[in-house]
Nucleic acid binder design. Structure first.
Lengths: 228, 228, 228, 228
DNA sequence: TATGAATGAGCATTCATTCAT
DNA sequence: AATGAATGAATGCTCATTCAT
């Protein structure tokens, strides 16, 4: 729920364009969104010119405004389009029968893999979120899925006596999620190359320890090491 | 160490200007840097126009180029100017006699306080770092001080058998540092208000647990709770 | 008779569209003309976009060109549509038996009332006439009805020795008609509020005196005052 | 004091540019204003492109915005520049010793001559005033000088028993002034060619009669005819 | 006829950067 | 060093007009 400031006068509700009414319109809009993604990933949000997008889409310059009122709006459409694509495969939540560590490890690995796959978009989203508060909110909402699942998981473990009951589950979930997501950013956007297994193992280990989760005997061997 | 890409043609060696030779020159340059900080914090890096800066500084537009070759360059000067201001008071490193938990808590608290004090600048740095790879490096270097101190500390604790010897100290230091810095960003830039004490305690608790650091008996009472 | 210049390249023969052949066509055309009037009166000629008109008419953008070749052409159609509406009820011309002053007063009052009723259109016509010479002619033709009737009236009075024989009847009619029409513009378009009775009386008084028309005994009491 | 409407959202206070601080700046600004006048008179307000103005002035396109924020603003500057030029030589007001008719005749003639001299500008002002309410006000203010002088004159004559005391002097002055100014527009802008002497005589005759001003014996022979 | 999407010329506007004084 | 005016490339955006369906 954070609210960013540093905006001032950039109100601009960006009067929404009507959605296309014909099949051709749908196709043209889709071409534009797809072209926008290409151009944004290639040139970054700021350097992307609308002319580049329409050229890439093979439409006239004016056609852009049939569907979008601004660069921000088409960027939002790009994010919408790739929403599913970016959702790290929803690993099932922890249930009583599961090995909590294995579940956490699987979640972290899935997150990192998804991040790696969409690194260009993640870089882009970071860029735009740092510039435009509207997209800071989008980023926040997007992270919430990950964070809230983790928060529920922590509470569940706490209830079963499997996690330190003294930490604020919500805050811990946020902090640990940031640890993972920022590490992913460092690795796949900034290029601080690290092995996926090493990352998964270390992050999982830190996470598990941080919450005081006991490791199960015969745990997933990919999570090496254990506290005696 | 990370190298960012997404640059292409933006080479721009940014031909450095000579430092001012006269006292008047020194004063004018200082006025410009100070004005730049004001304008950047108020309008953000992108919306700040050089004309705004010179107006704020009370100089003519042309005078800007006597001292700086570009907006980036004066932004670098701003960062240089506030370098000390932003350094969270260097808490001394862990030595044998110290309570490790207390030291970590002090470090986290100092970091958060510094972040809160310089929130406007941190937002700015995040903005520019997301846009311009040169400043992504600056951010990285800046974080390194914090991260490396933490890495040394971890190694030191591992050597004394006070921290889990199986985690990669460097990677753990990075991950945990990101956890703290990103939580600070969330709190003080995005406005997800949290109490400083709660933050310090929770982050310290997670940190300490993550590394398997045993809490000293009679520990700092501000670090509430303990693993039995 | 006047010919305006300031045109040059704006020839544009405005290839007239064929009138609609089907009943549906007639209805669509009528809807467009009606919508155009609404939009023109609301936004002015210049700010009215063809898209606004078609939207208001509930037709597709392309349908406009089935009936009109340009904004000018549909404006002409609007003027055509409201022609009768704008004609100030034709007061009968002065005949021997009438009281000339009463007739003039009735004419002025009718003109003012009509102007007040169609103020939005008159403003519009002034706007377009000032911009487009074709419509300056339309305005001129429209005024001619009023002016020529007045000219005939003056000549008639002169012949009967009831008006100063030395003035050029045509010129006087034009000048006095402008006096009335411009006063109407001032009042109903520019909003220089004046009472209709006061206006009618004063304008009639000035008109009558200007031509040296003797007032009949027992004249219409609404025309107060008299030259002894 | 009439207030026009038909504007809606066109607020735009047109943030004023600072006046030039150097001699060169003064010269450039003057070149722009002069060029604007040329282009406006040649192409009309609407068809004039800013590029035409800067080209005519021999400056870069961007220089326009150093001095003006919009086409409206430079048009206001043009009007300002020609203010004196357009003021019909201030004929002295009627004093007791003067022949009222001669004074009125002189005023009308001066007005017509000034109008003829500045016909291109008057056409322009009519155009813009019909489009932009701000300039409708300018036109109104400009006319007021003429109208108010006439109102004072009428009152003066009424006091001396030389003009019909029953007419509202203000309204009569406005109506008669409109008669003259609109006739001038007809003649010099719309091209309804008329001889200056004929116009002056007829308008003066109508004016004088309208107010019931007695003609002096041995009056100015240019005012032919008299009521016996 | 009607539709609504596609077109693209046209123009205003910004602002970093240069330069004469 | 300082000044502030001049420059002009770069682009977003509008909207009348056309056209395939």
């Amino acid at each position: 729920m954070p609210r960013t400031s540093n905006d001032a006068d950039e109100a601009e509700p960006a009067e929404l364009r009507e959605p296309p009414r014909t099949a051709r319109g749908v196709r043209t809009r889709a071409r534009l969104v797809s072209a926008a993604r290409t151009v944004f990933e290639r040139d970054g949000f700021l350097d992307a010119r609308l002319a580049d997008i329409t050229t890439e889409a093979g439409t006239a310059a004016g056609s852009f405004y049939t569907y979008f009122a601004s660069k921000e709006e088409i960027f939002a459409a790009v994010l919408e389009e790739v929403k599913e694509e970016m959702l790290h495969p929803q690993v099932r939540e922890v249930t009583s029968g599961d090995d909590p560590v294995a579940v956490i490890a699987a979640g972290n690995r899935a997150y990192l893999e998804s991040y790696a796959r969409n690194a260009a978009l993640m870089r882009l989203l970071e860029q735009v979120a740092a510039i435009d508060d509207r997209f800071a909110d989008v980023r926040w909402q997007r992270g919430r899925a990950f964070t809230e699942r983790n928060a529920r998981s922590i509470r569940h473990l706490q209830e079963r006596g499997l996690a330190d009951p003294d930490v604020d589950a919500g805050l811990a979930a946020t902090a640990l999620s940031m640890m993972v997501s920022r590490t992913a950013y460092n690795t796949y956007v900034l290029g601080d190359d690290r092995d996926l297994d090493t990352l998964t193992d270390t992050l999982t280990r830190l996470w598990v320890n941080a919450l005081g989760i006991p490791e199960r005997v015969n745990a997933d061997p990919s999570v090496k090491g254990s506290r005696p």
